[in-house]
């Protein structure tokens, strides 16, 4: 427990974080920025799991364990995405979304 802070404040924070991530994913035009937005979404859930575990169900460490796995998976995901972005950059010399629109409808 953190003194003076209830679970509502932290859940509000993570929800904000989640929606900032979704907003960034939709509006950003740079592939790296989109990747960062996805990381925000992932990390919002990580904080969520830890906080729920700590405040509501402190007997079993399910949430904390889950969050460790999320961090690992998110790292793998980022590594793969970066690898693909680098490969794309070698071919078209750009990491902008507009440059990846040869296929449409």
């Amino acid at each position: 427990m953190i003194a003076g802070i209830s679970i509502y404040e932290i859940l509000t924070l993570t929800t904000l974080l989640f929606f900032i991530g979704v907003y960034g994913f939709i509006t950003r035009k740079n592939l790296i920025s989109i990747l960062i937005s996805v990381e925000l979404i992932m990390n919002a859930s990580v904080v969520n799991f830890v906080i729920i575990n700590k405040y509501l169900y402190p007997d079993v460490l399910q949430g904390v364990l889950f969050s460790i796995f999320i961090i690992a998976v998110a790292a793998a995901e980022t590594a793969l995405a970066i690898a693909i972005i680098i490969n794309l950059y070698r071919q078209i010399g750009s990491v902008e979304v507009d440059a990846t629109e040869t296929m449409k409808y």
């Binding site: 979404i41 995405a81 990846t100 040869t102 296929m103």
Partner: peptide
Amino acid sequence: SSEAGIKLILSAALASGVALF
């Protein structure tokens, strides 16, 4: 092929992030 890869990985990452939440 690279374009397909980046579209798939970003959509999938968003999807799993939303599912996680």
